[in-house]
Computed example of a mutant assay.
Amino acid sequence: MTRRELAHWARQPVAVVVGLAFPVMLLLMFTYLVGGGRGVAGDPTEYLVPGMLALTMAFGLESTMLAVTQDLGKGVIDRFRSLPMVPGAVLVGRSAADMLQSMAALAVMAGVGYAVGWRWHNGTAAALGAVGLLLLLRFAMLWVGIHLAMVAGRPELVQAVQILVWPVGFLSNVFASPASMPGWLGTVVEWNPMSATATAVRELFGNPGGATGSWAAEHAQLLAILWPVAIIAVFFPLAVGKFARLSR
C-alpha cells in the first residue's frame, strides 16, 4: 500500500513539487516581504525558520485528504477491503507515504532556511531530537486529516475542511512571540499544540524564542510530546473505526 502511494508521486510530479514549494514560498515571503519574529530579540530568521518547520508539519494535509476521498469516491477502498489484507494496511500505507513526503519537505525547508541565514547551535543530537518532535506533530496531524477526509467523503468538501487547519497554524507563535500579543491572546497562542512544538524545536536548535517565563513555554518540550500523543490517541481510533464502518 505504501508503494502504491509512492507510485503516485512519479505519475503526478507537479503535485509533489507544489506541495514542497508552498512552505518554501511562505518562508521566503515572511522573511523578505512581511517580516517575522516580532517581539523577539536576536536574528528574526532564526526565530522564523523553526516556526515554519512546525507550520509545514501541520499544513499540506490536503494531498492526503484528497487521496483518501478520491479512493472513496472511485470505490478503490471498497475493493481493498474485499482483498485478503490487514484492514488497517490502507491507512497505514497512506500514513507511511505521507511521512516520507514530510521528511522530504523538512529537508527542503531546512536547506532553504540555511540559505537565508538560519543555523542550529546545539549539536547533532539536539537537532535530531527537534526533527523527531516535528515528525511526531506531523504524524498526529496526519490522523486528523485521514479521519476528516473519511467524514467529508467527497473531494469537493476537502477544501472546506482544510480551512479548519489555518486558524491552528496562524494562532500560534510561528511568526511572532506571544509576549508581543494581548495577554489573553498570548495565553491562547502558548497553549496551541503547534506553539509547543515550535518553542521546543527552537530550544533544541538553540534559536531565540524558546522559554518565555510561562508554564507552557517552560515545559514546551514535554507539551510537544503530550499534545501529539493526545491527538493520536483521539483520532487514530476514530479513523480506524470510521474505516471499519465504510460501506456498511
Score class of each variant (00 low, 15 high):
52 M>R: 02
181 M>I: 02
137 L>E: 15
18 V>L: 14
37 G>F: 12
181 M>F: 06
227 W>L: 07
60 G>Y: 01
246 L>R: 00
147 H>M: 08
228 P>G: 11
93 G>P: 05
190 E>M: 01
203 E>R: 00
18 V>N: 05
120 W>S: 15
67 A>F: 01
90 V>W: 06
93 G>W: 03
135 L>D: 09
181 M>N: 01
203 E>C: 06
235 F>I: 10
239 A>I: 05
55 L>K: 09
171 L>D: 05
3 R>K: 11
20 L>N: 00
153 G>F: 01
139 F>E: 08
183 G>F: 03
17 V>K: 03
201 V>K: 02
186 G>V: 03
78 D>R: 11
162 Q>W: 14
115 A>P: 03
214 S>Y: 03
156 E>C: 01
226 L>N: 05
86 V>I: 10
159 Q>N: 07
76 V>K: 06
175 F>D: 01
8 H>E: 13
228 P>A: 11
28 L>K: 06
205 F>H: 14
221 Q>H: 02
31 T>V: 14
201 V>Q: 07
126 A>I: 11
88 G>L: 09
52 M>A: 05
44 P>C: 11
220 A>S: 14
187 T>A: 13
34 V>S: 13
182 P>C: 01
172 S>E: 13
219 H>C: 04
217 A>F: 02
163 I>R: 08
91 L>G: 04
172 S>V: 14
103 M>W: 09
101 Q>G: 08
146 I>R: 01
226 L>F: 10
123 G>D: 12
89 A>M: 11
23 P>L: 06
220 A>C: 07
126 A>T: 10
174 V>A: 13
101 Q>P: 00
169 G>L: 13
2 T>M: 08
70 Q>Y: 11
128 L>Y: 13
66 L>I: 09
54 A>F: 14
69 T>C: 03
94 R>D: 03
102 S>C: 07
84 P>F: 13
100 L>N: 00
190 E>L: 04
136 L>G: 13
227 W>F: 15
238 L>E: 07
218 E>P: 00
102 S>W: 02
80 F>S: 07
110 A>M: 15
131 V>Y: 12
69 T>M: 03
9 W>I: 13
91 L>V: 06
93 G>K: 02
237 P>C: 14
93 G>T: 06
36 G>H: 10
152 A>P: 02
223 L>E: 05
216 A>W: 02
38 R>Q: 11
124 T>W: 15
205 F>R: 08
208 P>L: 06
236 F>L: 15
204 L>Y: 07
50 P>L: 10
234 V>F: 14
81 R>D: 12
70 Q>A: 10
246 L>V: 03
82 S>C: 13
177 S>T: 08
67 A>G: 10
56 T>W: 08
67 A>E: 07
174 V>I: 15
86 V>M: 11
99 M>P: 00
7 A>H: 10
216 A>F: 05
170 F>D: 07
18 V>S: 05
247 S>C: 02
63 S>C: 00
65 M>K: 00
235 F>Q: 03
81 R>T: 11
184 W>N: 00
183 G>R: 03
159 Q>V: 09
169 G>A: 15
86 V>W: 12
126 A>C: 09
35 G>K: 08
196 A>G: 07
214 S>C: 04
170 F>L: 14
118 W>L: 12
145 G>T: 05
216 A>C: 00
219 H>G: 04
87 P>E: 11
167 P>W: 14
33 L>R: 10
6 L>S: 02
128 L>H: 11
97 A>N: 02
79 R>C: 09
